[in-house]
Write a protein that binds this DNA or RNA. Sequence first.
DNA 1: TGGGTGATGTCGCTTGATGACATCACCCTA
DNA 2: TAGGGTGATGTCATCAAGCGACATCACCCA
Lengths: 200, 200
Amino acid sequence: MSHHVITYTKPMGRWEPDGVGRLRKAAMELYVERGFEQTTVADIAERAGLTARTFFRHFADKREVLFNGAAALEAAMVAALVDAPAAATPMEAVGAALDAAAEMLGGNRDYSRQRNSVITSHAELRERELIKMASLAKALGGGLRQRGVADPVAGFAAEAGVVVFRLGFERWVTEADDQTLGEIMRESLQQLRAVTAVAG
Amino acid sequence: MSHHVITYTKPMGRWEPDGVGRLRKAAMELYVERGFEQTTVADIAERAGLTARTFFRHFADKREVLFNGAAALEAAMVAALVDAPAAATPMEAVGAALDAAAEMLGGNRDYSRQRNSVITSHAELRERELIKMASLAKALGGGLRQRGVADPVAGFAAEAGVVVFRLGFERWVTEADDQTLGEIMRESLQQLRAVTAVAG
DNA sequence: TGGGTGATGTCGCTTGATGACATCACCCTA
DNA sequence: TAGGGTGATGTCATCAAGCGACATCACCCA
C-alpha cells in the first residue's frame, strides 16, 4: 500500500484520518473508471488503504457509499417546508422546500453531472436513488402534516414535490442551458400544474 | 429428493410441469411465513422441488419472483393510453391507463393486500417496486410521445399518473372501505389536480 | 503508567449469483 | 423404430456480498 503523508488534525483511526471520506472518494473513482458492477468492495477498500470488513462498518452496502448527502438534503428541505409562512398553501410550502434544495445543490453542476451519470448507468444505483426519493416524499408529507395539512392533500403535495424535484434536477444536469436550478424548479412546478389542470 | 406423484398435462421439463409457477408459489409462501430475509433461495427451490441453480435460470434475483405481473400491467396501461381518443388531453389519456390498471387489479383485493404487505415490510422489495413504477412512468411517457405529446408535458403527465396510481392503490389496499379501485383512482386524480392548482 | 475506548484488521462463515458441463425426457425425422 | 436434436434441469466450482467474533493498536485520560 501507498504511504499517505498527512497532517494530523483530528486523527480518527489508527492510521490516516477520515477513512469514511477516503472510502467515498475511492468508490466514486472506481465506479467511474470501471463501472459499478465491475468494482468489488475489496477494490474500494484497497484503494482507500482499508479492508473490506471496514467498508461494511461504515456503509450498509456497496451502493450506499454514493448516497450520503441525501439525509442532509432531506433535512434541509423539510426544515424549509416547516418554516414556510403559516399562510402558505401546501404546494407553496413544498415550493419553499424545492428552493432550499436548489440552493443546496445548485452550486456545483459538474459534480452533480458526474454523480448522476454514474447512477443512471447502473440499475442497482437507480434503484437506491428511488428509495431516497421515496424517503424524501415521506419526509415532506410528514412536514406538511406537522403544518396541519390533512392526509390526502399532504400525500399528494409531497409526491408532486418529488416529481418536480426529480424532473427539474434531471433537466438541470442534462440540458446545458444557463438557467439556475432554482429557476428550473419553479418552472417545473408550473408545468406540473398546467398539465394536471386539464385532467379528465 | 421427494417423489412427487403428478398427472402430466403438458410436461415442460424433466419432471413435474410448471417449474416457474411452483417457484413463484413457494417464494410467496415462504416470504409470508418467515419473512423475505429469512428465506434463502435454496429454501424456495427445495419447496418447489428444484435446485437453487434453476431458480436463477428463471428469475434474475430473489426479489424478481414477486414482480412478474408488472410487465403485463404496464403493457395494458400503455395500450389503453395509446388507444385513447385522439382528442383526449394528455391527462385524460393517462386516466384511461389508470382505468385499465384498475380493471386488471381491482378484482382480488385480498391477494393484493397479502402481496402488498409482504413488499412493504422489506426495504429490498420496496426498492424493486419503485423500479417497476419508474419503468411504468417511462413507458407511459413513451406512449404519450407516441400520441404526439411534446416532451416536458409528456414527462409530467406520466409521472403524475404514476403518483395517482401509487397513492390510489395504497389507499385501496389499506383502507377497508367499499369503493372500487377504479373509483379511488378517479378520485385520486382529482385530488392531485386540486392540490397542484394552488401552487406558489 | 496503566487501563479504557474506538476504529481497524483477521478469520471464517452463510448467502447470492453465475459459468461450465453433464444428464435425461420428450419430439422429430429418417 | 432407432437415432439424434432440443430444452430444462442437475451438479460442481467459484466469486462476491455481507456479517459475527475476536484480536490489535493508537490515542486519551485518570
